[in-house]
Design a protein around this nucleic acid. Structure first.
Length: 735
DNA sequence: AGTGCATATCTTTTT
DNA sequence: GATATGCACT
């Protein structure tokens, strides 16, 4: 049989290591794939190879990625190789595939299959409810921090009971109680948060061995992309799934692990060989993306990390241009300089706008860059930042839809019960909730009974009943109308557009557009996935879709995004802005070597996005938190091997004529007055500087909190720990 | 119940 | 500096 299958395409498109990794279908396989070494290619060809050789049916293949975009790409590329074999394969993100699995098995875990998926703001609302229920004052217990700790616990598979047992201090016990109550309420509301999507499958497998065995048998071949970014829960879920057939192939690069803060555990990839002792290991070290200079420069930085597999990428490409370093006065000039260089590259290099990316550490940095691009009339797209689905007006409409699907969703109910205003406030809502609880009703059912609840004004009763009947009407229509018809009609019924138009401000008109865009998106979703998609499908899609997934890589525009969002992408020319101590690496990681190594990996990820040309820039003075801050150059630039770098340290002159468009405007703007003579009262201190204190000894400045004469410094002392000092009294000596 | 002012926190990164 | 939230006041 196998002889008949033509696999010559393997030889043609793959190098020898890639081919080996594709052909080693049986048993555990670890592919250490450096940046730009063709890991997606290996994954897709491996799937195609398995199918072409009849080793498995499509439905026996499980392929996990981190973003929908990566999943879509994989699906597309597999379809090209084996066009007839697509249907039934499980290709998707961890979250979406596990959500699919959980919907099938939800009842076993005490959930309804229509469970809601809570995002961060839903989680925060819920946690506030929990804190209120436990009578804990919000001031002392920051919901954000607690949420973070609960999330960390979940990712490490620590249950509320485990946490309670391990807690020694009172605060820890309280946290454990909050965690327990939070989980209890989620179940009550028939909702799961993002972490639950990863953790609940494990609970399912452990409590129901037969279910586990079903999936173990079903998935003959498991493939995992970006394995370096898996957390403990993902690790264990994969272990369970692969335990029987052991055909698990993980692909990743420890140098590109950048989600530690979200619970990713780099040990998962570092220890794969220990976990699967009979595994085959392949190293992809030939890079097909970047020039030698870019690779060498990136390597000279990443090699400073201790926690890594040693490796060095190579290429057959020419050395290419050196990496350009731009040292600039302030963030405004930085933006202009970047745009200026962009113009030069555009003209010299036969390139188009879409070949450029501007990358930065924090979303806040996009503003000045955006402004500079706008001034020159350069088209650009910003990925990330304020997310569409998180806008108020959008969340409001979505909350109506969510409540339709899941009538227990109190969080959505609290959002919309008084939008538009119905004369229902906190007090009334509290009464309804209490009534629901006492009579064991869903929150929506309780609204139906509102005439029986004492102390609710006649006017409120009336509007609540109208609200209830509207919801009932659409619940009945769920089976009959398409998602977009329901949404459009509902939007019309509740009159959001009318109210917004009446407001008549610029902002409210923008919101009208947003709501219209939402309606359009819903109907597009139906078009894309066929007429049998339900509103519930759409809502899940919304919950698990991010900005980068919607990024249109065909649009001819410069792309602005964070370094995190850029992972997996490539551009001809890449700019990385803001290479300053305290910004990149970020100040919070300065005193934590693991966090610092992660920043370094992030830098590596950014640098290796560039195919032909890489620019790095830093500004000595930058606006942050609405204040001006002085900083020193990032250690990553200092670590970089100078032979690969073109040090353009002199600020001016840049070029006599801007090669881009109207040169006059550029020169005018660039010839701005120096900031050096202004507001220099505290310049002697900069983030990242080494200082000495008469009692605390030597240390590094982590942070400067400028607030006039009482500016404070946060200093990490080598022996005395982290201290906050008031600048005028600190008497620090600069080393 | 709704309005307006004061404050706090934010800028780490996202499924 | 911007937004979001909490609080006091009406």
């Amino acid at each position: 049989m196998e002889k008949m299958v033509d696999t010559s395409w393997l030889k043609k498109d793959l190098n020898s290591v890639q081919r080996q990794a594709v052909e080693q279908t049986e048993g555990p396989v670890l592919v250490l794939a450096g940046a730009g070494s063709g890991k997606t290619r290996v994954l897709t060809y491996r799937i195609a190879y398995i199918l072409a050789n009849g080793l498995a049916e499509p439905r026996e293949i499980l392929a996990m990625t981190f973003t929908n975009k990566a999943a879509g790409e994989m699906r597309e590329r597999v379809a090209k190789l084996t066009p007839s074999m697509l249907s039934g394969m499980w290709i998707g993100t961890f979250h979406s595939l596990f959500a699919r699995l959980l919907r099938r098995e939800a009842e076993k875990l005490g959930f309804d299959h229509n469970f809601a998926i809570y995002d961060e703001s839903d989680q925060t609302s819920l946690l506030k409810r929990v804190l209120a229920a436990l009578k804990l004052p919000l001031k002392e217990y920051s919901p954000k921090k607690m949420l973070y700790q609960i999330s960390a616990a979940k990712n490490n598979l620590i249950s509320p009971a485990d946490m309670l047992e391990a807690s020694e201090k009172e605060v820890d016990r309280i946290l454990a109680r909050v965690y327990a109550e939070y989980q209890r309420q989620l179940k009550d509301l028939n909702a799961m948060d993002f972490d639950d999507l990863l953790v609940k499958p494990i609970e399912l497998f452990e409590r129901f061995p037969l279910v586990k065995e079903y999936y173990q048998d079903r998935f003959t071949y498991i493939l995992v992309d970006e394995y370096q970014d898996t957390n403990r829960a993902q690790y264990l879920a994969l272990r369970y799934l692969a335990a029987r057939k052991k055909n698990i192939c993980v692909v990743g690069d420890d140098d590109q692990s950048i989600y530690r803060w979200r619970g990713a555990d780099i040990r998962n990839i570092l220890d794969f060989e220990k976990d699967y002792s009979d595994c085959c290991k392949f190293r992809l070290e030939q890079n097909y993306r970047s020039t030698q200079n870019i690779l060498s420069a990136a390597h000279s930085v990443i090699k400073n990390n201790r926690q890594r597999h040693h490796k060095e990428l190579w290429t057959t490409q020419l050395s290419g241009d050196k990496v350009s370093l731009l040292e600039i006065d302030d963030d405004l000039h930085e933006a202009r300089m970047i745009v200026n260089r962009l113009g030069m590259e555009l003209k010299n290099g036969d390139r188009d706008f879409k070949d450029f990316a501007l990358l930065y550490r924090t979303n806040a940095q996009s503003r000045v860059l955006e402004e500079a691009l706008r001034v020159e009339g350069i088209p650009y797209i910003i990925v990330g930042g304020i997310k569409f689905y998180e806008r108020k007006e959008i969340k409001d409409v979505l909350s109506y839809l969510r409540l339709l699907i899941n009538p227990s969703d109190v969080i959505s109910m609290t959002r919309i019960i008084n939008t538009p205003a119905r004369g229902v406030g906190q007090v009334t809502l509290g009464k309804i909730e209490a009534f629901a609880q006492k009579n064991n009703l869903s929150i929506l059912e309780a609204v139906a009974q509102v005439p029986q609840i004492p102390g609710v004004s006649a006017k409120s009763v009336q509007s609540l009943l109208t609200f209830y009947h509207t919801m009932c009407k659409y619940r009945d229509l769920l089976g009959q109308l398409s998602p977009s018809e329901i949404a459009a009609s509902l939007v019309d019924d509740i009159g959001v557009l009318r109210d917004l138009k009446q407001e008549g401000t610029i902002e409210s008109m923008a919101r009208v557009d947003n709501v219209r865009e939402l309606l359009l998106a819903i109907s597009e979703f139906s078009n894309q996935f066929g007429s049998k998609v339900t509103l519930a499908d759409y809502l899940q899609h919304v919950s698990l879709t991010t900005d980068i997934d919607n990024w249109d890589d065909r649009a001819n525009a410069v792309t602005l995004m964070t370094l995190h969002a850029a992972k997996g992408l490539e551009f001809s020319v890449v700019f990385i802005a803001g290479l300053e101590e305290g910004l990149f690496p970020l100040s919070r990681s300065l005193d934590d070597s693991a966090a610092l190594e992660e920043e370094r990996r992030l830098f590596y990820v950014g640098a290796t996005r560039a195919k032909h040309k890489l620019y790095l820039s830093w500004a000595r003075n930058r606006r942050r938190y609405g204040e001006r801050i002085n900083s020193v150059v990032s250690r990553f630039i200092k670590e970089m091997d100078g032979t690969f770098v073109d040090w353009q340290q002199k600020r001016r002159p840049v070029s006599r004529r801007s090669p881009y468009g109207s040169s006059r405007r550029y020169e005018e703007t660039f010839d701005m007055p120096d900031y050096e003579n202004e507001s220099q009262e505290n310049v002697e201190f900069r983030i990242g500087m080494r200082v000495s204190h008469h009692t605390f000894g030597k240390g590094t400045i982590l942070k400067i909190e400028p607030s006039g004469p009482t500016a404070k410094l946060v200093v990490q002392f080598d022996t005395a720990g982290k201290r906050r000092l008031v600048m005028p009294y600190a008497k620090l000596e600069i080393l």
